[in-house]
Write a protein that binds this DNA or RNA. Sequence first.
DNA 1: CACCGTTAAGTTTTT
DNA 2: CTTAACGGTG
Length: 735
Amino acid sequence: MFSMELNPVQKEAVEKTDGPIMILAGAGSGKTRTLVSRISYLLKEKDVPPYRLLALTFSNKAAREMRERVASLVNLDINSLAITTFHSFCVRVLRSEITYLGLSKNFTIYDEAESRAVIKSVLTRRGINLKEISPYEVLYFIENLKNLGHYVDRSPPYNYEVEEDHEFYSFYLEYEAELFKANALDFGGLICGVIQLFEKFPEVKKHFQERYHYVLVDEYQDTNRAQFELIKILAEKRKNICVVGDEDQSIYSWRGADIHNILDFEKVFPEVQILKLEQNYRSSKNIIEAATHVISQNTLRKGKKMWTDNPQGDSILMVDCLDDKKEASFVASELLDLYKKGTLLSDMAVFYRTNSQSRIIEDHLRANKIPYKIIGGTKFYDRKEVKDMLAYMRLVVNDKDSLALSRIINVPARGIGATSLRKLEEEAVKGSVSLWEIICAIVENSEKYSFLKISAKIKSSLREMATIISEIKVLDQEKESPVTLYEKLLHDTGYFDFLKAQKDYESLARIENLEELSSAIKQYEQSNPNPSLLGFLETITLDNSKEEEKTQGEVSLMTVHGAKGLEFPFVFLVGAEENLFPSYKSMEGGSKALEEERRLFYVAMTRAMKKLYITFARGRMLFGQIKFNGPSRFVDEIPSNFFLLHKVGHEESAFQMEEDDYFSQESPYETDKVFQLGKRSLCKFESGSKVRHSLYGEGKVLESSGTGDEEKVLIMFSGGVRKKFMASMAPIVRI
DNA sequence: CACCGTTAAGTTTTT
DNA sequence: CTTAACGGTG
């Protein structure tokens, strides 16, 4: 029954169950179907008990989808199946075993913002100005270590270099000590923690190695070194490891994903069988062939040759727009047109490189009354008021979490300002106890701490707060429902009244958000057999995706990153311009970064099933000024026989258009800026154009902004020298 | 200690 | 154009 819907290679991928196997699955090649079939094959045909299987994915979305599809194929309780994300798997391991590492089972998980806050406090404590050393850089350094699988005192040999004499390494050590004291782990620490557990305690390792007979990894191209180490250990004994990935879709290297995990898989598992799924079932020939041309410019590849039996299909429509507004209005009117011809709105999607591009598109969709939804970009749990309440909850669950406590110690205002907090923190450090413990000590025995010179008013504030938290801690231990605990916290701490007292519009919105948080907790309670505050907090840190509303009939808007794994009959890829896509940052990063941008472009193209639109704007409002970047280089990499060029907002080609003609047309815009623009001449040095400077010699324009006398250009000269000039003043000429 | 004005900088973001 | 973060003032 499995072979019926599978092609020969897919069938092989399903039935070669034993020994290491790497499946290189191109976009739209039926990857998920193959994986799901493989799992049900193992369960049904090979009689593998469900608990012997471990399938690891990256996103909760992918895990959910796979679980549902397996469940529909196999008549089994899916809860006994470990189809889960790397991080959730590690949390599960650690919740039962972490005492080996000296933490307790109620450990907190810090997200990136919290990690950054810890780093800031480490730096500040050392008297380092945050301008001298950016916390972001330190965070990046630490994350990198963790992406490699490093942990403090890991004993060699490990296959990476650690600069222990690096200035930042001492920050890392201190950061780790802080987290340890707070009984907390960050995202990377979850993975590294399990590696550490396995390496230091062979009996634990043995237990898990014997538990899982078959290990599967989805989206393998996005694994980092640490995750690879982890699966290597898990599969060491039986070597029944199956990884599925596509090196051409590796788009998270900036986050530690290591393409060498794919390129070097055979070195670690020499007996590996490599299968390539090259037939695409998703897109038209035109789209596949055009995308193939683009991706073939990359050098870091295993090399797959995608092909399809699908019809040739429509040409790609390349849309050359005068500016970003024209681009947005084109997209809106085309969507409307397609809709009128009977296309479902849910079959259409708009992709952009950066989130900031969504706004102008949204404006035009709203103006045309086109329903849309934005995928990703969830910032709900980033809101101040939500984070405050979460901090209260974290404190209840884990009172060692001094970061959470210091966040809310004066919210709402209790008269405990920075000075008092610093005193408390210093005292906590001195006695090497947590902030919470020192506060409890002061409340219980204030005479002993009279030398701290804490006013009676502050002491009574502390007492009041400590009492409330303690009460709720007891209720939590008595397994009171999370939503009850939340409501009690919200009101007893005075947070609700504090917001209520402010009558401004913003506070009203905040109260609404807190109500939404309450319903999120209720939702969690309903979908969990044993709900707890700890469980809720874990769920939202590891899975911040909002509940998918099942509303049909909306156009989807998302970043290209967000589009991975999805497909749509009609796709609009907007903003295909130099400096935007590829992003200006990637152009500094050399060919590696550029190749990743190309993969990203490739991912975007291969989402489209029937028709792909690629649009670019000649002028675009960026950072408050109009920039003129040329079309993306990736556009040039698509051979012209695959697309039709369509121009919007300017009748003739802007490439050769006379400057006067350019603005003599009836301008549909009312804004002053464009009017002013029209009075001056167009920029003379588009990005990409070659110039000669009387001093520096030949160079290439990287960036051009402003027009006429205001035109500024950034030029890269040979030898990598970059200079910025006023175009009208600098001795430069076009060549 | 809270508020306001100035300044600087500005990707992508599965967990 | 935005937003976040800092420094100064009341």
